[in-house]
């Protein structure tokens, strides 16, 4: 007790000094707007930095959810896009309005979003497995795309899964158009040069070859290859790739064209399955006509 008193007598002056200074500082901060705002902002910047780092960590764990939401949003946007295109086409035919369709039947598509859960690029017959199946509305022969371009065609469907035959399958073959060099977008306007058939040669997952393009057509490197719409799987005008290289062989009537595929099949993770609503009707009609 004695030492405590002694302590206070020797050091009391410091306590009182600190006390008075703290008291004045409290007065300063509480009663002057400028100092208060500065005081609060410096506190806030500290907490804001803390929150920023916290979010950096937490955001990582919510990426899966965010990806799913974005994929779903992409599907919605694509549907909107098709609707907008339909109205655009119907408006373009304004002068024929007395017999035009409310919307073009061949543009009647709907989209499903799916995630790639199994994938290969190094075999001759590659397949991609998706996490959607019959119960989600997927059927055989639906076409599969991602924002970069064409992926493939649904070959088999179970209740919860479906298997896609991608372009990287030597059995897959696809009718394509060559268009003039153009800024890459899904729907490409520009002169059609010719139609060919795309096939993968089984070597490099980045390249495929385009066949049956006659020698007289003038093509150049960088021309875009898009779907033709003649096969009943794909809507017209979806990007497939660009011409990387071509050569004329002396003993052949056709070019050998090397196509750089726009989709990176090694990293493909979210895709959209396109449902063409009138596919069955078109098939039946065509079969009927052949009889």
């Amino acid at each position: 007790m004695k030492t405590l008193l002694k302590f206070f007598i020797t050091y009391g002056i410091y306590f009182i000094f600190v006390l008075l200074e703290i008291g004045s500082l409290i007065l300063v901060v509480n009663n002057n707007h400028f100092q208060r705002s500065v005081f609060l902002t410096s506190c806030n910047s500290f907490s804001a930095t803390l929150y920023k780092y916290n979010h950096r960590v937490i955001d990582f764990f919510s990426l899966i959810q965010v990806n799913k939401e974005l994929a779903a949003e992409n599907v919605d946007l694509r549907i909107e896009l098709v609707k907008a295109q339909n109205t655009l086409v119907s408006l373009a035919q304004d002068s024929l309005s007395f017999n035009s369709f409310p919307s073009n039947p061949e543009m009647n598509y709907s989209f499903y979003s799916a995630r790639v859960i199994n994938n290969s690029t190094n075999k001759l017959l590659n397949y991609i497995t998706l996490n959607r199946g019959k119960k989600d509305g997927i059927e055989r022969e639906m076409s599969v795309v991602n924002p970069q371009g064409v992926v493939g065609i649904v070959k088999a469907v179970s209740n919860h899964f479906s298997v896609v035959m991608p372009l990287l399958n030597s059995q897959a073959q696809m009718s394509c158009k060559i268009k003039e060099k153009h800024n890459s977008s899904d729907i490409i306007v520009g002169a059609v040069k010719d139609i060919g058939s795309l096939k993968w040669d089984g070597l490099d997952y980045r390249y495929a070859s385009l066949m049956q393009v006659p020698r007289h057509v003038e093509i150049s490197k960088g021309d875009t290859i898009v779907t033709s719409g003649y096969s009943d799987f794909f809507p017209e005008g979806i990007l497939v790739g660009t011409i990387a290289d071509f050569e004329k062989s002396s003993d052949d009537n056709y070019y050998k064209i090397k196509v750089r595929l726009s989709v990176n099949f090694k990293t493909v993770s979210y895709v959209q399955v396109i449902d063409y609503k009138h596919r069955k009707e078109q098939n039946e009609l065509e079969l009927h006509a052949e009889k």
């Binding site: 500082l25 300063v28 509480n30 002057n32």
Partner: peptide, 24 residues
């Protein structure tokens, strides 16, 4: 001395609307 100084600073503060600054 400390208390006198606090009082002096506070009186100046009260009149010049800078509560606490002069006291400190």
């Amino acid at each position: 001395l400390l208390f006198i100084a606090f009082l002096l600073g506070l009186s100046i503060d009260i009149f010049s609307n800078t509560l606490g600054v002069h006291a400190f």
